[in-house]
């Protein structure tokens, strides 16, 4: 009889325990269902800009997967620095669980990033860096790696007679410095054959003009690398107009429809493209992890790909080169 009683007490306890656990579970489920609030501040929100649209798309994917409530803010163009900074202040004001920021300015945005840190809001930087490191993590294309891919390709085609010209975008900007550095590494022993490095301030027109000047100054140049879309396309147009398209091997960075056409036409030997979807995706994922108190990697490389004429329409690259946002439907 006593044994039964003990068993009975045990089972009764178990039953109560079970009910308590059940109630506890309910409470836990309810608490977990509170979504994280994340604000993404891009350099621009522009429907015609594939790069930022892709970042937004990647960000939305990650938000959906992590059950986060994502708000994407940004000025209409990358030139509206004031507006971008204003948005940072507004973001701090609304106290989200995390902020993901693409710093619009190398120098000026740092102050605002520090304000986010002071407000103790988890911060992840994407795409670009600033004068000083900030935030808990950075998700960006490894520009040295990207430059290295360009350089490596050029090295394969290089000979003793090779003379190389580089058209950079903004002198002193981190991306320009890093890409050039990677490019030199990729060129290896041929880096000594770089005859000129010019900068276009991210303008087609300037790129066109300085390329023409450079070619006039150094007619022996037979390889040109453009370090971003503006410099690459501007340089390519100059080369075509000077009738040197066949004799000069060109490598570009980033992509646009024009650049792809130039790649198809054989003006570019290859272009290196970034993976903006990955930047957005990894940025939000890192922010969600950070907000949940998990450990994150400090520096995440979102990757880059070298695309040649033959690999434009591979499954992998097609989606990178021609991001699809279902826009054509909206247009109709």
């Amino acid at each position: 009889m006593k044994r039964y009683k003990r068993l009975f007490v045990l089972l009764l306890g178990l039953g109560i325990f079970g009910i308590v656990i059940g109630v506890g579970n309910l409470v836990r489920i309810r608490r977990n269902s509170q979504p994280l609030e994340i604000i993404l501040i891009q350099k621009a929100i522009d429907e015609t800009n594939d790069f930022w649209e892709s970042i937004s798309e990647g960000a939305r994917m990650a938000a959906k997967e992590n059950g986060a409530e994502l708000t994407i803010w940004g000025p209409d163009s990358e030139r509206e620095i004031e507006r971008a900074h204003q948005l940072i202040l507004e973001a701090i004001e609304s106290r989200p669980d995390a902020i993901v920021l693409a710093p619009i300015s190398y120098e000026e945005t740092l102050k605002y990033a520090r304000m986010i840190e002071e407000a103790e809001i988890p911060l992840i930087l994407i795409d670009s860096i600033m004068e000083e490191p900030a935030g808990a993590g950075l998700v960006a294309t490894d520009n040295v790696e990207g430059g290295f891919k360009m350089g490596e390709l050029m090295r394969r085609h290089a000979t003793e007679d090779t003379a190389i010209g580089i058209v950079g975008h903004v002198k002193g900007s981190s991306t320009a410095v890093e890409r050039e550095q990677g490019l030199r590494q990729g060129l290896g022993e041929y880096q000594d054959q770089i005859v000129d490095v010019v900068f276009c301030d991210s303008s087609f027109e300037i790129a066109y003009d300085i390329t023409c000047e450079m070619l006039k100054k150094h007619p022996e140049i037979n390889m040109i690398a453009g370090l971003n879309e503006y410099s690459a396309v501007g340089a390519a147009e100059a080369v075509i107009d000077m009738g040197r398209a066949d004799s000069i091997l060109m490598v570009g960075f980033d992509s646009s429809t024009r650049e792809i056409q130039l790649l198809e036409a054989g003006v570019f030997e290859a272009i290196v493209i970034q993976k903006p979807i990955n930047i957005g995706y990894l940025g939000i994922e890192a922010a969600a992890k950070l907000a949940r108190g998990e450990k994150i990697e400090e520096n995440v490389d979102s990757g880059s790909v070298l695309v040649t004429k033959d690999t434009i329409y591979t499954e992998e690259n097609e989606k990178l080169l021609f991001p699809f946002f279902g826009r054509s439907k909206e247009g109709l």
Partner: peptide, 16 residues
């Protein structure tokens, strides 16, 4: 077995 549509097509191609 090729992907016609996938919301995360690019992430899949990236191996992520």
């Amino acid at each position: 077995g090729g992907i016609v549509y996938h919301p995360q097509q690019q992430l899949i191609y990236s191996g992520m």
